[in-house]
């Protein structure tokens, strides 16, 4: 449980004169669910973008340690290389491939674990056919886990909102990540959909999936996470177990503001 698989040290990101992230430390251990919370605009999504290679951080280190292999420094790698190393993410504003079917969306996730190319596609030789069959098979298994197998051949854009969120998680899982990054997975969900999501994340955790998530839904965060990091204005202001965070005065201040008579 205690081997760190993601270590972020002194991470900083500047956009011109604005410090979006400032000296941020964070770590995720194997098999753990870690939550990153903070008020709107605290820099949580910027943090995700820096870690997954969409932005190149201006300072600090992001180090990934896939199980059984030496540590890799991720700074400056492209998003697709990060995904290949074993860290996959979802997006706050859903970014599915709308005009592809649900199954195909998941199949895209298998892209970096397969390798047929132009000739394979044209000749459709045995190796390619086998790979294709395996892609379909594994993708379908993931859809079953997400409870979406009935919609396998529907267009992604025709799914309900909650189902689209689950499909995003499924697509990320298809890249076989050992660390899954979820950016506000419960945003816009109704209570019932949130309950289903909690069940799903619990299931993944039991299977040994390490998860780092950003979330505003405190019920979900408190119920699921082992540890919580709290950010405000691009800095880390607190870290601890859900119980510690709930009673931390700094966190309460960041969320609710200082009371007048304090």
């Amino acid at each position: 449980m205690s081997t760190p698989i993601l270590q972020v040290k002194n991470l900083g990101m500047r956009f011109g004169g604005i410090k979006a992230l400032d000296d941020l430390d964070l770590d995720v251990n194997s098999g753990e669910i870690v939550a990153l919370i903070g008020p709107n605009g605290a820099g949580k999504t910027t943090f995700f973008n820096c870690v997954t290679g969409i932005y190149n951080p201006t300072q600090g280190d992001v180090v990934l340690t896939p199980p059984g292999t030496p540590a890799i420094r991720l700074n400056g790698l492209k998003p697709n290389q990060v995904a290949e190393k074993g860290m996959a993410r979802t997006f706050q504003n859903i970014r599915l491939f709308q005009k592809m079917t649900v199954l195909e969306n998941v199949m895209i996730g298998r892209h970096c674990r397969t390798n047929s190319f132009i000739l394979g596609a044209i000749l459709r030789n045995t190796a390619t056919r086998q790979e294709e069959q395996e892609t379909i098979h594994k993708s379908y298994k993931i859809l079953q886990k997400m409870g979406l197998e009935k919609h396998a051949n529907d267009l992604a854009s025709n799914l309900s909102y909650g189902a689209q969120r689950r499909l995003e998680i499924g697509r990320a899982l298809a890249t076989e990540p050992f660390l899954l990054l979820l950016d506000e997975p419960a945003a816009g969900m109704n209570p019932q959909e949130t309950q289903e999501l909690i069940k799903l994340i619990n299931l993944l955790q039991r299977e040994g999936q390490s998860i780092l998530l950003i979330e505003h839904d405190m019920k979900l965060v408190m119920e699921l996470s082992h540890r919580i990091f709290v950010m405000d204005y691009g800095r880390r202001i607190a870290m601890g177990t859900p119980e510690e965070i709930r009673n931390n005065p700094v966190v309460i201040k960041a969320y609710l503001g200082e009371s007048a008579d304090a």
Partner: peptide, 12 residues
């Protein structure tokens, strides 16, 4: 469909 998501899913 989506260049950023496409890259994030490991496509070069």
């Amino acid at each position: 469909e989506d260049e950023i998501a496409c890259q994030a899913m490991g496509i070069d």
